Computed example of a mutant assay.
Amino acid sequence: MADFFTYIATWSGIVYVAFVVDVYSRAIVGWSAATAKRAKLVLDALDMALWRRDRAGTPAGAGLVHHSDAGSQYTSFAFTAHLLDAGIDASIGSVGDALDNALMESQIGLYKTELIKPRKPWHRLADVELATAEWVDWFNNHRLHTSVGDIPPHEHETNYYAQHQPQPAAGVNA
C-alpha cells in the first residue's frame, strides 16, 4: 500500500487530495480531499482503504506495509498509531528520494493529466471531491493498465482472489 497527496488550486483556495494505492493491483483503495494539509487528510484516505478492503472480504493482514513520503501528516503520532492499530507496518521514504515514491508520483501525474488539468478551473472543494470520486471509479473499473496485463485494477484483483480462495479443511469421512 502506498500513500501520497497533491494539491489543486481552486477559486476558493487550495484543495489537497490524498490517495492510498494497492501496489499489487494499482487500484486506488482510498482517497480524501480537504482544504487543510493535516493528518486528518491522510487518516481519512487510510480509513477508506481499510473500509474498502474489509468490505471486500480482503482485510489488511500481517505483512501489509504502508509506504509514504516523509511529510508531517505521515509522521504524526495519530497516523502512526492508526497504522499500528490496523496491524500495518510503516515505511517512510527518505527526504528527496524519488525512487521509493515513483509509483505514487506516477499516479498523481495520471490524476492531474486525466482529470485536473482538462477540467480546470476548479471552483471549490465539493467540485474536486465529486470529480475525484467519478475518476477513481473509472480508474479502478475501466482504465486499462499495462502493469497488470492491460486490464483494469478491479479485474486484476478479482482474478487474483478467485485463484487464491482458501481451501476447505479436509474432513473425516463417516
Rank of each mutant, 00 (worst) to 15 (best):
D100C: 09
M1E: 04
T75E: 05
V23L: 15
P152N: 12
F4E: 01
A170R: 12
L103D: 10
V65F: 07
F4T: 03
N159L: 15
F77L: 11
N173E: 14
S12M: 10
T75R: 05
D44Q: 09
D47C: 03
H154C: 08
V95T: 09
V20S: 08
S147T: 13
R52I: 02
A98S: 08
S68V: 01
F139N: 00
T146D: 08
Y161E: 03
L50Q: 08
V17D: 01
A36S: 09
Q165G: 10
P168F: 05
G96F: 11
R38A: 10
Y111P: 00
R119N: 14
A174T: 14
L130Q: 10
Y74V: 03
R124T: 07
T6E: 06
S76L: 06
E114V: 11
V148M: 04
Q167R: 13
G93N: 03
A18W: 02
F77T: 08
W11D: 12
G149L: 07
V23G: 15
S76T: 03
A27T: 05
S32L: 05
A34F: 00
A60G: 04
G71H: 04
W51Q: 11
R119T: 14
S91I: 04
A169K: 14
K40V: 13
D100V: 06
K40L: 15
V21A: 06
S91V: 08
G57L: 04
P59V: 12
T158E: 04
E157F: 01
A162Y: 10
E157W: 05
A133C: 11
R52W: 04
T132Y: 01
D54G: 10
K40M: 14
P166M: 14
A36F: 04
